[in-house]
Amino acid sequence: MGDRLEACFDHLRMEGRSGLFPFVTAGDPDLDFTRELLPLMTEAGADGFEIGVPFSDPLADGPTIQRSSMRSLAGGTRLSNVLEMVGEVRADIPDTPLVLMTYYNPIIAMGLAEFVRGASQVGADAVIVPDLPPEEASALVEIMNDYPLEPVFMLAPTSTQERIELVNDVGGGFIYYVGQMGVTGARDALDSDLGATLARINRVKNRPVLVGFGIKTPEQAAEVAGHADGVIVGSALIDVMEAQASRESKMRAACDYIASLREGLDRSKTVS
């Protein structure tokens, strides 16, 4: 596992805490905003970040992240600028894991080798490609093997035992468990099978499991965290920022929201 991710999960384990990994679309509304926001959210209690690269056809994403991607693209965000921004923000938060999340076609357009080299140079720790299952990932993973960059794969409620083992064997960094059927987006209720599926994964896993898709409230985050090593919160965070008009109020609302999730996660761990 990459040094920063490993250190982060070791640290969490030692303190008996759950990981909190917010997702933001890079460049929504612009890259300066994202660069400023990440260190603030670290102070508010985030342990690491997923940084989304906007794509014209985000087929794994619901309306919130679709809108966010379109705003970012309209502002002229490109994969190469996102990498630059990651390099700059890395200086401010040197120990925080940064995970790039991008659909495959922008990587193809940049060139696989150039992408991997670029991402690792700027200090990204892992890459998630939602439309690249392990069966199609050999070309990218082979290149990544030469760099300190981890390929993170996803599991879903529909994943068979065979696929759970496959992702556990070939993936790096952590396992991203898609906590519900369907696309990204905040939900009022969590999947009722969540605990059972995570138990199946926990029996075989040899790396941490983070749960994303659908988490909104501190209570939901705490419930999920009881079955996993941490949570990823994206759409709900973007919803919170969308509701605000000015840059300052967006950042403040984002940090307040992250702090409330942090509190919910920590409270549940102290109780248990």
Binding site: A60, E136, L155, T158, T160, R163, V178, G182
Partner: peptide, 11 residues
């Protein structure tokens, strides 16, 4: 090939 989110792979 088969470039889809994991949720669809089993189907």
């Amino acid at each position: 090939g088969r470039y889809v989110p994991e949720t669809l792979m089993p189907a």
